[in-house]
Simulated scan of single mutants.
Amino acid sequence: MPESDKKPLAPAAPRFDWQADLALIADAAREAGKVAMAHFGQSPEVWWKNEGRSPVSAADYAANRILEEILRHARPNYGWLSEETDDDPARLSCDTLFVIDPIDGTRAFLAGKDTWCVSVAVVHKGKPVAGILVAPSLHEEFTATIDGPARRNGQDIAVSTAGIEDSLKLASAQDMVAIFSPILRPRIERVDHIPSLAYRLALVADGRIDATLVKKSAHDWDLAAADLILARAGGSVTDLDGQSLVYNREDVTHPVLCAASADILPALLKNISRIPRS
């Protein structure tokens, strides 16, 4: 065939090394965890945001700063969304970005409780592709990439094998349990409140609880890393219509959600008898 008749080759699809990104965010999250631990139990200064509904402490800001220093220097082309950084609409034009909660569970942190964590995710085209939760006070780390297993402290984890006919450990407020049908409710064993949403989802991924309900208005930074970890462990978190979550939209809040193993989630959703107001 003459050279002039040859069709040009299509450009190769970009290759992404999400394992390298996981290594990067893991190092950064561990450093942020060390910074937070230096404030833990030390009564850090506290301010109130969202019209006085949400506390933020000097520890949150300090952990956020170290994450920014490490991650933005390493990946200057990635966008940025963090609970403790003023939102920059430029993130909407980024295919890939970091989604950060420097301390998920600030109320627990300030109360001296161990159930808080540093949550860091890489989100690509609306989906998390690498994520880590570091819970330094509990000596736990949960990790996953889109093409690898979910792990806790380096060991593979999986969701509970409980079926819809079994007794189900559900982490939720009492008023949220009432959304389930009277048929299912007697089989629900409600677990005490777990302040960190990210850590709560990790417990579903780890099989320590079977499911959780999430009140409306959770944010991308509460969910992205834990969403991926749960998915790679065999579970899912969706809205009440069974729709998966999309990240890095203009509105970063989400409706009421349900999380469980992929095997029982559809049945749980079918057993919702009323839509909660909160």
Rank of each mutant, 00 (worst) to 15 (best):
K127N: 04
S196F: 05
D95N: 07
A23E: 13
A10S: 13
E141T: 15
D210Y: 00
K34D: 11
G52R: 08
L223H: 04
P149R: 10
S4K: 13
E189K: 14
V120E: 06
I25H: 11
D263H: 14
R249L: 13
R249G: 11
V56L: 15
P89R: 04
P55Q: 13
I229Q: 01
V56Q: 04
E31M: 07
V252T: 11
V122A: 14
L170Y: 00
D114Y: 05
A13D: 09
N248C: 14
T85N: 11
Q243A: 15
E250N: 11
A74M: 04
L257V: 02
L110W: 00
L22R: 01
G163Y: 00
G207L: 10
N64E: 15
K215T: 08
R151I: 06
R107F: 04
S4D: 15
A10T: 09
V252H: 14
P195L: 09
A158Y: 03
K34R: 15
V99T: 08
E189N: 13
S196T: 05
R15G: 02
P186S: 07
I164C: 05
A144M: 09
A29H: 02
W48D: 11
L133E: 00
W80Y: 07
C117Q: 05
K49A: 12
I275W: 12
A130D: 04
C94Q: 14
P55F: 09
I100R: 03
T212G: 08
T106V: 11
T161Y: 02
G154N: 13
F98L: 12
R151H: 06
L22N: 02
Y78L: 08
S57E: 03
R107W: 10
A224F: 06
L184R: 08
S181V: 05
P276V: 07
Y199D: 00
A121K: 03
K215C: 02
D17G: 04
I272D: 09
R53K: 15
Q243F: 09
S273M: 10
V252E: 08
L92Q: 10
D239W: 07
A224I: 01
K6Y: 07
T161G: 02
K113S: 10
A162I: 06
D114W: 00
V46W: 05
P136V: 08
V134K: 00
A233S: 15
I25N: 08
D88L: 07
P44M: 12
R200G: 09
G235V: 03
D166K: 01
L201A: 05
D27T: 14
L67P: 00
A226P: 14
K49P: 05
G207F: 03
Q155E: 15
M37Q: 14
W18A: 02
E165I: 05
